Simulated scan of single mutants.
Amino acid sequence: MGLVGVLTFWTGLAALHALRTDLSVVNDYVSDYANGPWGPLFTVVTLVHGVGNLAIAAGLGLALGHDRVARLGVLLFTVATVGLIVAALFPTDPVGAQQTVTGLVHRVAATGSFALELVALALLGLAFRSAAAWRSYASLALGLTVVAALMLAWLLVSISLQWPPGLPERAALLTFTVWEFTTALLLARPVHAARALSTRGRGGRHGDAPEMV
């Protein structure tokens, strides 16, 4: 489900970029695709992405066990996903239009989702280092987290200085979704999933799982 969510989101955004040539990759936010004739497509692919992320959160909660850092990371990742779903259900205001409550809810949800997911990724990266079954993935996960932090910083600077926000937002989205995709890919591996379930079923700690092969 996590893989389907990310792939659907990537495919939908690629289609929207081709269909909505009136919007600028450099000057416009991704959320601007929610307005106009193809708005429902943006809403649907974002909701599918959100459902996929909930599946990733459930899988990580099962695979990483009772480690406190992992549990906090999974919780924040889940809350960030709820923010993503809320942002999809409450579209942003059209460019140049007067601010509405719906648009305000979207901005708050989207901003909070970005921030919470970044913290979640950092915590989960640390949890991966402590879990034998995930240790080989920890360096890549933490590397993607650092890149995501840099892209978010670029976005915040662009907003504060009134620079075009399109490229930094898309760069941040790409980094976050690559992390989600690679994590879901590992969760979907039959051998890895079986070992995680076996360890959970025996009541073992997440760090007791064998190395990934």
Rank of each mutant, 00 (worst) to 15 (best):
48 V>D: 00
47 L>M: 04
61 G>A: 05
22 D>I: 10
62 L>D: 01
76 L>Q: 09
46 T>C: 02
46 T>R: 04
42 F>Q: 04
75 L>Y: 13
46 T>V: 04
83 G>T: 14
55 A>W: 11
61 G>T: 08
84 L>S: 12
75 L>D: 06
37 P>S: 00
75 L>M: 11
35 N>E: 06
81 T>I: 09
57 A>F: 07
85 I>L: 12
72 L>C: 06
13 L>Q: 14
45 V>L: 05
57 A>D: 02
24 S>W: 04
90 F>H: 15
49 H>P: 00
50 G>A: 00
32 D>I: 03
84 L>G: 11
52 G>Q: 04
52 G>A: 01
28 D>W: 05
78 T>G: 10
22 D>H: 11
26 V>T: 14
50 G>N: 03
44 V>F: 02
73 G>W: 08
88 A>W: 11
69 V>S: 08
15 A>C: 03
43 T>E: 02
55 A>M: 07
38 W>H: 14
54 L>N: 06
72 L>E: 07
48 V>Y: 04
88 A>C: 12
42 F>K: 09
89 L>R: 12
35 N>G: 00
55 A>D: 12
74 V>C: 09
92 T>R: 15
74 V>D: 05
59 G>V: 08
20 R>E: 02
93 D>I: 15
71 R>F: 10
44 V>H: 00
38 W>D: 05
29 Y>E: 05
34 A>G: 09
46 T>G: 00
76 L>I: 13
37 P>T: 02
71 R>Y: 11
22 D>M: 10
67 D>T: 12
54 L>T: 08
43 T>R: 02
55 A>Q: 08
16 L>E: 06
48 V>P: 07
49 H>R: 13
18 A>T: 06
69 V>D: 06
21 T>M: 01
68 R>T: 14
86 V>Y: 07
92 T>S: 15
56 I>D: 06
33 Y>V: 04
54 L>A: 03
64 L>S: 10
93 D>S: 14
57 A>N: 03
61 G>W: 11
60 L>V: 10
14 A>V: 15
46 T>M: 03
79 V>Y: 13
75 L>A: 12
29 Y>A: 03
56 I>Q: 08
44 V>R: 07
32 D>W: 02
17 H>D: 08
37 P>N: 02
51 V>D: 00
33 Y>A: 01
79 V>Q: 14
65 G>S: 09
13 L>E: 15
26 V>M: 07
13 L>H: 14
57 A>M: 08
80 A>Y: 13
57 A>R: 06
57 A>Q: 06
32 D>A: 09
53 N>C: 10
22 D>W: 11
92 T>W: 07
63 A>M: 10
67 D>L: 06
16 L>P: 04
86 V>C: 02
70 A>P: 10
69 V>I: 14
37 P>C: 00
53 N>F: 04
87 A>Y: 14
38 W>N: 05
80 A>C: 13
28 D>R: 06
47 L>R: 01
36 G>F: 12
20 R>Q: 01
57 A>W: 05
37 P>V: 01
32 D>R: 11
28 D>M: 08
60 L>A: 07
67 D>R: 12
25 V>I: 09
73 G>V: 13
52 G>I: 08
85 I>V: 15
30 V>Q: 05
79 V>A: 11
83 G>Q: 13
73 G>C: 12
24 S>R: 12
89 L>Q: 15
58 A>P: 13
39 G>Q: 04
71 R>T: 13
21 T>V: 10
41 L>P: 07
27 N>S: 13
79 V>W: 13
24 S>H: 10
31 S>Y: 03
88 A>Y: 12
